[in-house]
Every structure is written in C-alpha cells, then in structure tokens.
Design a protein around this nucleic acid. Structure first.
Lengths: 143, 143, 143, 143
DNA sequence: GTGGTCTAGACCACT
DNA sequence: GTGGTCTAGACCACC
C-alpha cells in the first residue's frame, strides 16, 4: 500500500504531490495494475489534507488513464509505468542504492543528492543535444 | 549564468521553479557567492513568464538570505550552499554522471531516473530510522 | 460569446452541462480556435452556480485538449471540433432547421424532437451493425 | 422490450440514464401502457450496474406516475407520453430518419447530429421568443 | 482582475 | 462505506 507524504510549505500543490508519488510508485513497480490505492478517507487520516484534494488527485490520474475510480469500491491502478531496468534486483538499482547510501554517509543532504542527479541528467541531455542537432528541450519533471 | 527552464503545466508555481533551480545551482557550485543572477528582463526573454513572477522569486530568495537585490545593479548571490563532495571533480559526482548516462542509455526516462533515486533515498532513510529510534520524518524536496 | 444555460434538477451535473454545451458550440463552429470563453465570474453572474464548478468544467476541457486556461487572461479555445457539413449554410443544416420548425409547430416538445432524433440515430446504427458484423456498440452522448 | 445502454463515464448518473431512456421509449410509442419493463435482474445482466440503481430509477418513475411496481410481477407502464406526429409511419419520422442517415453517411458523428438538432431547437425557440414577448426560457433536456 | 488551490461541510450515487 | 458533486469562502499565482 502506498503511503503519501505531503510536504505542506514546499509550494507544490498537495494534489500534485499525490500524483507525483503515485507515478513514482508505478514506475518503480511498487504499484501494479489492479492494485488498490488507499481510500480518500485513509489518505485524509494519514496526511490531514482534505478529502476533496485527494479526490482531485485521483480524478486527474483517472483522466490520465492511470487509475480507475469505482464508486463504492475504491480506486484501482489500470496502467503500469514500470520500466525494464528499474526492477528491484536490477544492476542499475543496486548501484544507485549503493551510491546514494555513500553520498548520504558523506554528509550530503537529500536535496544535494537530488541536485547532483538533476545536474547529471542535464549534462546527459546537453551532451546528446550537442551531438544531434535539433530543438533543445528538457522534459518536465524538473521543478 | 544560470538558465531557468519553466515547465508550465507541471502544476508547480513558476516562482517555486526558479527558487528550486537557483538553489540547485548553489548546491552544485554552479553559482558562487558574488555571482549575478540573470536580470528579470533576461529571464522574461528566455522563459516568457511575467517579470513580476521573477521578482517574486528573487525576493523570496533574498528573504531566505541567499541573494541580495541591488537596485540598478542586479541580483547577487550572498550565500553558498555548496557541499564538499559535490564538486565537479569529486568521485561521487563522476560516479553519478556515469550511472545516469548508463540509465538513460538503457532506456530509462528522466522521470524514471528521478524515481529510482528517490526510492534509494527513501530506502536509506527508512534503514536509518529503523536503527536509530526517533521521529521518522522525510524532509521536503519530495514532491 | 457562448451563453450557458444550466438546468438544475435535470440530474446532470452542472459541470457536465457546461462541457457539453461548449463542445456543442465547438462542433457547430459557434466557437472557434482562439475564441475566449466567458470568465468564471461571468458564468457565475449568469447562472448562479459556484465559480469552482465552472473552473472544474474548464479544467476538464483543458485536460481534454479543447481549451487553455491562462491565468490573469482567461480561457481560450485551442482545438476545433467543427465538421464539414455542419456549417451554417450547409444543406443538412438548412434541412434540419426546417424540419425542427415543422415538428415544433406540429406540437412536439423539445424532448419529443430529441427522442425522435435519438431513435433515428439508433435505427441507423442498428442498420449498419446488422450489415457489417462485429461488436455492436453505441457511442456515448446517449444520456 | 426496452434495452438500456448505460454510458459509464458520461458523468450522467446511471439511474438518470435509465429514466431518460424509458421516457424516450414512451414518447416514441416503443413502450405503451401495460408494457412490462425489464426486471432489475435483466438490466443488471445486460448493463453490469447494481440492482439497487435500477430499482432507484424505477421508483423515481413510479413517483412520476409513469410506471407501477407490482411486487412479484414486475414493473409496468401506466401512462403514455406518445405524441401524435411521432408515430412510426408519420411523415416527420420518415423525414428525420432519412435526414439522419444522410448526415451520418456524410461523416457526421452522433454528437454532431445531436448538436445540429439542439442548435435548430435553440434557433426555433429564440425566433419565437423574439416575436412573442415573455420570459425566455429553454426547458430542460438540454444537458 | 484572471485563473487556482484548499478547506469545510452538506448531500448524492453506487456497491 | 466507497467515490462524487456542489457550495462557500479564504488565500495564492499570475498578468
């Protein structure tokens, strides 16, 4: 079962945080097709945000084709975002888990780690853009 | 010079994106004390957002003690967030750059990479929480 | 400018009525790409429904790719649903206008007219289904 | 025998769709006084909605005086909504059947056809409103 | 002054 | 007891 953690005061709307965290769980395979999301009530109990806000997030994901809201039953995953290469026992995953642990142990904060990865992603994209001419764009997921 | 990229439609307020990206540059050392941020005019030209929105972000960072607005001159960095271990030639940085490139080359999207790192960070924190009792909290930067 | 008419008590959610009426205007060419929808405030003034309900409808249409909400500016049509054959001076349109007038003059109510057309649509679909075997389905727009 | 088709996802409550479709059949004469509606069980089998929802619709129609629920026997039509002019062999009906077929053959979708008719109805009402002063109102059946 | 988020709470639809 | 609509009103982001 997913557990949402809402950071009030991050400036990021609560419903966006729910959507992002759900998508992340889908990408990681933590959430699979058919799985049930926590009910709005459960999320409310766990996070102290308003039921309407939770439903807003669920509705958005429904329109995005990720989940299905069934009245009287709950909300269920209808599409997977899982990627080969991101499984729990993949080499890439073992490596990043190890690297992250070392980075944290070296005194880097969560934000530092994410900044490093973002910089690495940007570097990779810029590298590719340079070699393959075309319109240079970085895809969302930035903020 | 930092280059802001605003993702309209990410749901994240534009001024938050500016602050986040600036902080990231500070953590990475891309931006150092004394450096000048782009003028509102320049940001507007590059991103098509309203000057007031840029100024709002700069004012927020001034209040956070990160930058100083000198009227007629520009906005200047007053504090560093750089971390030892995150320098451009540090081993951690070389490793993550390499790993990211391999992950992307393996077909993972930007979002997948960030999801993997976030999961690794969560795993690390949970691990520590288990061994060292205390209030279990994950700090912002999550959404 | 579109003018929404909300039938409270029809059982159909107000935001659905707004979406339906907007789509209808798009199909008829009454609303064209670039046109501005009435502001939420204007709709509120004209229909006595809550601003949030209007915004809910506009947001839904934005996600459907029909309109774009620009903060501080308004809501604008981004996609046309106009169909060749449905223009104001097309033969089909002249014919239906004439037929409808005669039906109404003959004492049929609005609901009768719509029932007749729906029956005719059903008959047409059933006819086709009979001749071309396959899964028999009637598309939405039914309720 | 009527055959209900429920469009989940149209936003219109299922029980409203049942009532609407029944009324339409009454107006068209497809359903006559004394006719038996399908049992809740049959509707459930055909539409995969909950029996309670069907009963809710039947009860609403009973209160509206359209049908009578006889326990153990079924639900029966008690009132006609048929209109002279809408019979199966009336000229108006032949004309609209023909027109609809041509409209569909010309590439118009079901929704386009309904939009055209609605526009024609609106035009007719507006015309009359202009010539005969009074409160200008469009009756339900709109959404 | 535009759209946008969130809250609170009432009532409804559906299983 | 699930999700769903709507209202009212406060406050925010953006132009």
């Amino acid at each position: 079962m997913v557990e949402y953690r809402i950071d009030r005061g991050s400036g990021v709307p609560a419903y966006v945080q729910i959507v992002d965290q759900t998508e992340r769980a889908l990408r990681m395979g933590t959430l699979k097709v058919g799985d049930k999301l926590p009910t709005a009530r459960e999320v409310v109990a766990a996070t102290a945000i308003n039921p309407n806000t939770v439903l807003r997030a669920y509705r958005d994901m429904e329109q995005a084709g990720l989940v299905e809201l069934r009245r009287g039953l709950g909300t269920f995953v209808t599409r997977s975002l899982a990627r080969p290469g991101a499984e729990g026992d993949s080499p890439l995953r073992r490596e990043i888990t190890d690297w992250t642990a070392r980075a944290r142990a070296a005194g880097l904060e969560r934000a530092d780690v994410l900044a490093l990865v973002t910089a690495a992603l940007d570097a990779y994209d810029d590298e590719r853009d340079t070699h393959t001419p075309g319109d240079r764009e970085r895809k969302k997921e930035d903020a």
